[in-house]
Amino acid sequence: MIVVAVHTPSRLGRWLVSGPPLAYLIVFFALPSLIMVLASFRTPGEFGGLAPLIEEGKLDLNLESYARFFSESVYAQIFLKSFGYALLTTLFCITLAYPLASLIARSSRRYRDLLLLLVILPFWSNFLIRIYAWMILLGPNAALARTVNRVLAWFGHDPVPLLFSAFAVLVCLVYVHLPFMVLPLYANLEKHDQALLDAAQDLGANAWQRFWRITFPLSLPGVYAGAALVFIPAFGIFAIPDILGGPEDSLIGNVIKQQFLETRDWPFGSVLSIVLTVVALAFAGLAAWVARGNLRTPSSARGSRA
């Protein structure tokens, strides 16, 4: 007789294991986030922070900070600018990540892990150091700025500073986020069936057609995943414009920092943070939704396979 012992997970064991991390994350992540949402409905305190919750028997909850956000167009403009920077960053990352990811996906097993590790390593070096590196590279005395300005001088153009400019901010945004695009793109390209490309070639498709009509459509789920991974952190960035940008390159992250640490207007800072979260999550949701939809509707490449 065969006895099959079924060990049902005990309720106690479950709580002993998941209880501590759950409790920690509820206290130090969920609760602070909830408090921030509540703070967005409060009145700023006289000396920064928040006004008392209950004053003269009245509960302090209002929509004033939201009203301010929607009435002063400067904040919508900064959001739009941050959105533009994050979108451009995403597009440049796709362009740069494509050759890297395809090379890694096509290389032999022996080199693949090394090539992948080389993409990931810069991501693990300190964030500030990577920003600082561009301060050096784009600095006024560095070779790059001198060469650019010498070329500009030939055309009779005044010298332009590379550092503390929108250009510096964008280059560094792309630099910092590139690994986030390479990884999902590589994971996708690795799974492609070479037979599809061979078939296309047999049917007379040239390299360009094979890329645009087979490889690229099939890689879209990877592109969308990478886009979400790049766009979200790029949208909320504050250190890069803070260090490499000029006064006009302030993005939404800088305004949030300013509200919390300088103006000390917590309710308004919370409103900006919440809008940032909503836009970032909407973008991630959109990317996931488009990626799923893309898998269901047979693209031309999949259609030919069916």
């Binding site: 994350l25 130090f28 992540f29 609760l31 602070p32 986030s33 408090i35 921030m36 703070a39 979200i232 952190p233 949208f235 909320g236 960035i237 504050f238 992250g253 949030i256 920092k257 919390f260 917590w266 800072g269 919370s270 943070s273 940032l276 979260t277 970032a280 999550l281 991630a284």
Partner: peptide, 17 residues
């Protein structure tokens, strides 16, 4: 979620907290 959201959000919400 703490990995997925922009870092600044965790920074400011913990500051308030």
């Amino acid at each position: 979620a703490p990995i997925a959201i922009p870092e600044i959000l965790m920074g400011v919400s913990l500051l308030i907290f």
